[in-house]
Design a protein around this nucleic acid. Structure first.
Lengths: 132, 132
DNA sequence: TTACTAGTTTATAATGATTCTAAAAAGGTG
DNA sequence: CACCTTTTTAGAATCATTATAAACTAGTAA
């Protein structure tokens, strides 16, 4: 299994559940956005064993902490995650309530001129809201 | 009262509660960020009458819809609002869990090159996460 | 293999922000 | 004042997320 080493190297035990969730998250051609609820549905379809919702929450948070997933800053009652961990941005279609990737190259370079004493910039995220 | 006309012009009846909430939100020197819970506390301190939490929710949403408040896209269990409705961005101090305004001039011009068919850009919001 | 231990999974309960409900109150107009 | 619509309100309902604590499992060392 190709994810065993990846997990071990992060200090995460390669449990059956985590490996199965890896398959669902990282074994697809394209990256994608999801909420926990959507991931739960996807797992139900693709994985024969039942994985408890608590485990899905635990795993997603563990993966996010290790940098294998990114949380997308957006106002929604549910938290959105992204399997695309490259430096990039998002469109948010207000009507469809859907996210669309916006590659770094599609946004001009962003130069933050203001500095905050004693703080480093960890990330710069752009959210472009779309309407009809 | 200076807010009566403002509310009437928006099609909102200038009720006692709305006028009192206007005082708390818009009568201060500086603009500020808040959650509903923080606003509730502020109202308790500054307003003699009790205003129900449901009314605070209703009012904030009404004001947001009319463009007197902005929601700030950020991952938090609570929704953040901003009384600064000018076109601007935010720092988010991850440690302190606090927002800091980032004026448009402090961010280089942002040019979204990618276009989505049939959709217009409604807003472009930048969130800069800060760490120590 | 066989313990042993720390990390994980799980069902379920708890939490907490937000929304809903339906009845009472208040604003606006004639 | 009388009427109608909007608004307020307390409390219930909803729903995503987190906490709990017991059962299970991976890794390790004897």
């Amino acid at each position: 299994m190709k994810y065993i080493e990846k997990l071990r190297n992060s200090g995460l035990r390669p449990t059956k559940q985590r490996l199965q969730i890896c398959e669902v998250l990282f074994n697809s051609e394209k990256t994608f956005h999801f909420t926990i609820n959507e991931l739960d549905q996807k797992i139900k379809k693709q994985v024969s064993d039942k994985i408890s919702l608590a485990t899905i929450y635990n795993t997603v948070h563990a993966f996010e902490k290790k940098g294998y997933l990114k949380q997308i800053p957006i106002n929604s009652n549910q938290t959105y995650f992204d399997t695309n961990i490259s430096d990039h941005h998002h469109f948010y279609d207000l009507k469809e309530e859907k996210l669309i990737d916006l590659e770094n190259a599609d946004v001009g370079p962003i130069n933050i001129l203001k500095k905050i004493n004693g703080k480093k910039i960890k990330s710069v995220e752009v959210l472009v809201k779309l309407e009809d």
